[in-house]
């Protein structure tokens, strides 16, 4: 499954959830959903904005881990 490592990258850049949300242009609630791994999908536009705000690559935020599946 895909692991969201947004919190690690945010800690590296020393940016708070509210600040990043404002910079990316989404609500803190939605960013929190992404950060805690509850999100089911991420728009390319959101990913683009986050990568720009954090000055990083998608691979810094997203990681593939073998094992667990998504099937409900």
């Amino acid at each position: 499954m895909i692991i969201v490592n947004l919190d690690v990258m945010m800690a590296k850049r020393k940016i708070s959830l509210g600040e990043l949300a404002a910079e990316v242009g989404i609500t803190p609630v939605n960013l929190s959903i992404l950060k805690t791994g509850k999100a089911k999908a991420i728009r390319f536009s959101t990913l683009d904005a986050i990568c720009r705000a954090l000055d990083c690559q998608p691979s810094d935020i997203l990681e593939y881990k073998e094992g667990e599946n998504y099937d409900e």
């Binding site: 960013l31 959903i33 509850k38 089911k40 999908a41 959101t46």
Partner: peptide
């Protein structure tokens, strides 16, 4: 709707 709500 659930799918949409959890798309950021």
């Amino acid at each position: 709707k659930e799918e949409n709500d959890f798309t950021v």
